Simulated assay, not measured.
Amino acid sequence: MADLFSRLARSLDPETAHVLAIRALGGWGTLHAPLAGAIPRLAITVAGVSFPNPVGLAAGLDKDARAITGLMALGFGSVEVGTLTPRAQPGNPKPRLFRLVEDRAVINRMGFNNGGLAAGIARAQAADRRGGVLGINVGANKDATDRVADYVAGVAAAAPIADYVTINVSSPNTPGLRDLQQGAALTELLAACGAVRGATPLFLKIAPDLDAAGIDGVARAAIDGGVDALVIGNTTISRPALRSAHGSETGGLSGAPLRTLAADKLREVRAATGGHVALIAAGGIDSGAEAYARIRAGASLVQLYSALVYDGPGLPRRVVAELAECLARDGFASVAAAVGA
């Protein structure tokens, strides 16, 4: 069934397939599809939040919080929706999503297309989470005159609903957005968002393209600003050797070619933070073995997205099962015991 799903999805235009997948998962959720069975050794607490397993869905798939219950039922321990911006925006012109089949990769330049904060928050509030963890990812409108104010509005609206809120300052598809990862701009942003989050954990999603100085700066700001976790990372604007004809498209690259860069940056951020901030690894994760490697390199949680395009909806359960086998094989009674091992 998963192979059939994947073949059908890949026969369609990428953005059309994306929309149809969300509709299908949204409908499945209304049927109260069961969650995957819990595996006790995979439970982990991060920032005071109890995750049934450390394998999460990265933001970007369910931009408007339309399929939370269906996505939870695939076996994810957490689902992160968004990115939501204060006002609805159409995003960048089409085409803006490209499959690099030969590379098991995706390039996107979507540009935070979403129906706006109010509508997304209302759907998230009404969703049946079925015991899973819900993250809400927030960003700034492309034409915002005060981007910090946009983030503050997002955090303030999402915090009462979400189990955690992620500030996304790392998309390469909104001009100038990544400047907020640097220096005084980041310090100001974190202070302003921290003032409205209440008791809800605040995560920060950063780019895998940061250099050593940039990583050190983010680490200091995150520790000083009370950030509960860093997500490493978003898509990359770098281009390793690619075989696909779409490899020259502009936008953020994700999927298998990002694996080495993302793993290297995870280790660099781990060293820079000294274990004082929880880390969430993303980028090129498509197996339990890769999830396990990131956990041993310092991640408490992992997220995936692009691999679903190629491996279908059965992927989360497979990754969860393989991860449990890796932990058992090496004698770890829990995920937490393996973090940074």
Rank of each mutant, 00 (worst) to 15 (best):
T174S: 11
T174C: 10
G131W: 10
V152S: 06
P172D: 14
N173M: 10
D146M: 09
D150K: 03
I167P: 04
D179V: 13
S170F: 09
A153P: 09
A159M: 01
T166F: 02
I161L: 01
D146Y: 08
G139T: 04
A162M: 06
L117A: 06
G139W: 01
G132I: 11
R147L: 02
R147D: 00
V165R: 00
A156D: 11
V133S: 10
V138G: 08
A126V: 11
Q181K: 04
S170A: 15
A149C: 04
A153S: 14
Y164E: 02
S170I: 09
A127Y: 03
S171D: 11
V155Q: 00
D146I: 07
A162I: 09
N137G: 08
D146S: 06
V148H: 08
A184I: 14
A162L: 06
A124H: 06
Q181D: 04
A144Q: 06
G139K: 03
L117E: 05
G131I: 12
A126C: 10
G183W: 10
P175D: 14
A119V: 14
L134P: 04
G154N: 02
D128H: 15
I136F: 00
A157Y: 03
A127S: 13
T166G: 06
D128P: 08
A122T: 12
P175E: 13
V138A: 08
G132H: 07
N173V: 10
L177V: 06
R123K: 15
A162N: 06
L180F: 15
I136A: 03
A159E: 01
Q181T: 01
A158Y: 00
G131H: 10
A140D: 02
L117W: 01
R123L: 13
R123S: 09
N137Y: 02
V133Q: 06
L134R: 03
A184D: 14
R178V: 11
D143R: 13
R147T: 01
V165T: 02
R178W: 12
S170E: 08
V169W: 00
A159P: 04
V148D: 04
V155G: 04
P160D: 07
A158M: 03
N141E: 11
S171T: 14
N137W: 01
D179H: 15
K142P: 00
A157E: 07
A144E: 03
R178H: 09
R129N: 09
P175T: 14
G135Y: 06
D150G: 05
G154D: 01
Y164P: 05
D179W: 11
A140S: 15
P175F: 13
A126D: 01
A144K: 05
I121A: 08
R147P: 00
P175G: 13
